[in-house]
């Protein structure tokens, strides 16, 4: 889309101007790069360094190699983060949370997007309405749902109890079998609009004459959806999936506000913060942070390479 600025210049002038412009670009970028190095690069480097120390809040600590992750204790047993069942439980919780919420958000978001993209009246109202959950701060939406999930006074517990899904006085949150899914429901409500807006933009970029051609050829609506809409939507769908997966994998605020550090809904980020701040062990906590970082990077690399996503 972008045409090079200097197409009209003669070749000799062009080289000089190009290098001057490159130098200008460096100056324009310098402040941003310095700030990013300070607020992102350095703290990340510090976290990685701390992960290999036994630092605490009071004690700068010393280098301990991989001991935070795994080491053989004097009695011959293996200890460390990688043998900690609480860590693995948080990994399982996070993965289940991510799969559940991203899957349903995608399906629901696609449904919302298709409805809004149809030619029926009232779609403008709908598009405005779905912005409401998106605009509500995460912590606020967590508290709103927390209230609806209260054991006795919560409307959702009431519905669950009258439908016989829950015992009297029980809620979806207090039941450890459903608590994680109760949180997934909050996340779906909050983030489906984002998904729907991204997919809607994708749908609107599909040229309408394609559908006209399909009509002329007599393709049914269902066939049009699977043969035309879905393939043409897949780039937008993939990018939305990646963003949402990465977001869900690092989830912290909503489960923390609703359930605190309860083990049945403890996510990886919550486990890391618990070690880091609440237990005041900077070294061990940073080791968890490092693992979370690596897991998320792994997901990103898998996504970007296997799906061959192109951002430009």
């Amino acid at each position: 889309m972008t045409v090079p600025v200097d197409v009209t210049m003669r070749p000799k002038q062009k080289a000089g101007i190009e290098s001057t412009r490159a130098r200008t670009a460096v100056w324009l970028l310098a402040p941003t790069l310095i700030v990013l190095a300070l607020v992102a690069g350095y703290p990340l480097f510090r976290t990685f360094y701390l992960a290999f120390t036994d630092a605490t809040f009071e004690n700068p600590g010393k280098f301990v190699g991989f001991d935070n992750f795994l080491f053989k204790a004097d009695d011959g047993t293996w200890v460390g983060l990688l043998t900690d069942p609480a860590w693995w439980e948080s990994v399982v919780n996070t993965v289940r949370f991510t799969i559940g919420s991203v899957l349903f958000e995608t399906l629901l978001g696609l449904a919302f997007a298709l409805v809004i993209n149809s030619k029926i009246r009232g779609k403008g109202l709908l598009r405005t309405a779905i912005l409401v959950p998106w605009a509500i701060p995460t912590v606020v939406s967590a508290q709103m749902w927390n209230w609806m999930y209260q054991d006795n006074l919560g409307i959702l517990s009431q519905w669950g109890q009258s439908l016989g899904w829950l015992k009297v006085g029980q809620s979806f949150l207090s039941n450890p079998n459903t608590s994680l899914w109760a949180l997934v429901a909050v996340d779906i409500w909050k983030t489906t609009p984002f998904m729907a807006l991204l997919l809607l933009a994708g749908l609107q970029s599909i040229p309408s004459d394609m559908y006209e051609a399909a009509e002329v050829d007599g393709a049914s609506k269902v066939r049009q959806f699977f043969r035309l809409t879905l393939p043409l939507l897949s780039p937008a769908l993939l990018v939305a999936l990646i963003f949402r997966t990465l977001d869900a994998l690092r989830v912290f605020d909503m489960p923390y506000v609703v359930k605190g550090y309860a083990p049945d809904t403890l996510t990886m980020s919550m486990f890391a913060r618990q070690q880091l701040i609440d237990n005041q062990s900077l070294g061990a906590g940073s080791a968890v942070s490092l693992l979370v970082f690596l897991i998320i990077m792994l997901f990103t690399v898998i996504y970007v390479t296997t799906l061959r996503v192109r951002f430009d």
Partner: peptide, 11 residues
Amino acid sequence: VFPQIAVLGGM
């Protein structure tokens, strides 16, 4: 897209 938790200790 960096997880905030990854820089928490260093920050």
